[in-house]
Design a protein around this nucleic acid. Structure first.
Lengths: 258, 258
DNA sequence: GGTGTTATAATGTTCGTACATTATAAAATA
DNA sequence: TATTTTATAATGTACGAACATTATAACACC
């Protein structure tokens, strides 16, 4: 028995566009076309019926058909060619933008059980490096030192430098997620981070905090955090056991700016 | 003297839409609106004249005006609200997708002068690790070892594992860019890479190759390269001097999949 | 001054028409 | 049979009209 064509499937759905749910006609048509493409597993290059054919099948105007198709073109699903027709698009292998996650989120996503111990917290003098990273002139800054554990094992030692102007209280429970604190209590919308990765070896202090030998290889992270508006909101330095933590990223060739 | 409004500027350009260059009316109108917004440095929330006003100024149809505005909406420049009007959009701080660059490209972008010395090249036995990374069953593979220099200084030692099925000749000049070789000679379109970053310390061999002490911290990169169709095309391990090379990435909070 | 109703402003949806442009098929000609 | 011309297919552009929906302004009333 001959396989269905998209024409068959569209005809089968020709009565599905209704005014009942107040969903615009073009939107319903768009969904019908998408479902037909999926049902037939149409491949890139596959050809759609013409605008005229589709308007005849569904009894809608050509403008309505064109709006439905146009949205699928914008979504990257279809491609139109003047004088030729409308085709299924070549799929783009889209790389996901690297996500900015807090330590807690990151470990959970790896299936580990995260926990945090506060080593110290204080209002201290702002070092030149931190001043340069955050581009501030503040003489003092809130400094939080923490060890992060994955399934009870110390793997990261981090230091956060938080500008006093953000009014984050030193009495906060920093064993909890700093990201959550910012977003849920202080309503600071974290936007993005500039993340620098380097290699180092464990110093005496680090070896004690992370339960490794002096000279053991570590990953060193330096992150400047920004809010959604582009203002710097804190700076973070982390030292990660090189054997327990690696960093994964997907890079795209010739990726365009968004 | 009172500052121009966008209405003033649009009126000033009301005769600019012509058939002369065969550029569609909607496209010309789009450009005029964009230029007016730029000239006035209109801020997010700034209001545009209504569709009716714009069609009266330019003597075009409402459909033409709507198409011009719609494209600016799609571009993220404008936002429309039923019953209210059309406004300048809140700007989105877009993070650039991390680029997949070859070593040569990467160093050039950092302002250094890259060069490469081939340490060895051979058809060798495929290790279990490489077999797992590339998901191949090949018993043999092309192995190229190279040292990469920035301004005459060795900073990276890399090993590329190239499947024989790609027919890359062992006689190629691997002191040149492997990316260029793939793309320009073998017409293999590099799509993306999965990149793993870890920390290590220099072994005896590495210390000789990179002119550092044994035990010196290094960044270890493991990259699986894919073509545009999603097939694995080679695997690459690199060791980078931790003092001469760091890795920078921008992470976006709550980034959507593309 | 506050509340409710009506009118207006502005975008959203849908239709129909006509012509322009591009690509391809069919027919005519050499 | 190959080339040129003509016809057809299909999308692109532009217009005008009408009604729907949403938001806000204006007006009437208490």
């Amino acid at each position: 028995m001959e396989e269905s064509t998209i024409l068959d499937i569209l005809k089968r759905n020709s009565n599905k566009i209704t005014r009942v749910n107040k969903v615009p006609f073009y939107f319903q048509l768009k969904e019908i076309i998408l479902n037909a493409i999926s049902e037939l597993k149409m491949k890139p290059g596959g050809k759609l019926p013409s605008e005229l054919e589709i308007m005849e099948i569904f009894g809608v105007s050509r403008a309505t058909v064109r709006k439905a198709i146009e949205e699928l073109v914008i979504d990257g699903r279809l491609a139109r060619f003047s004088g030729k027709g409308t085709f299924i698009s070549e799929p783009k292998i889209e790389v996901k933008l690297p996500q900015l996650l807090g330590f807690t989120e990151e470990l959970k996503s790896r299936g580990a059980r995260p926990s945090t111990k506060v080593v110290s917290k204080m209002v201290g003098k702002t070092s030149d490096k931190v001043r340069e990273k955050l581009k501030v002139e503040d003489r003092e800054i809130l400094i939080v030192e923490r060890v992060r554990y994955a399934d009870e094992e110390p793997i990261v030692f981090s230091v956060e430098y938080i500008p006093l102007s953000l009014n984050v209280s030193i009495d906060e429970d920093f064993s909890k997620s700093l990201f959550s604190l910012y977003e849920n209590k202080y309503f600071i919308k974290i936007g993005y981070a500039e993340h620098k990765i380097n290699a180092g070896v464990a110093t005496k202090r680090i070896s004690k905090l992370l339960d490794i030998s002096v000279g053991f290889p570590v990953l060193i992270f330096e992150r400047v955090l920004y809010d959604a508006g582009g203002d710097k909101i804190f700076y973070e330095e982390s030292v990660c056991r090189g054997d327990k933590y690696n960093y994964n990223i997907v890079l795209q060739r010739g990726a365009k700016e968004k």
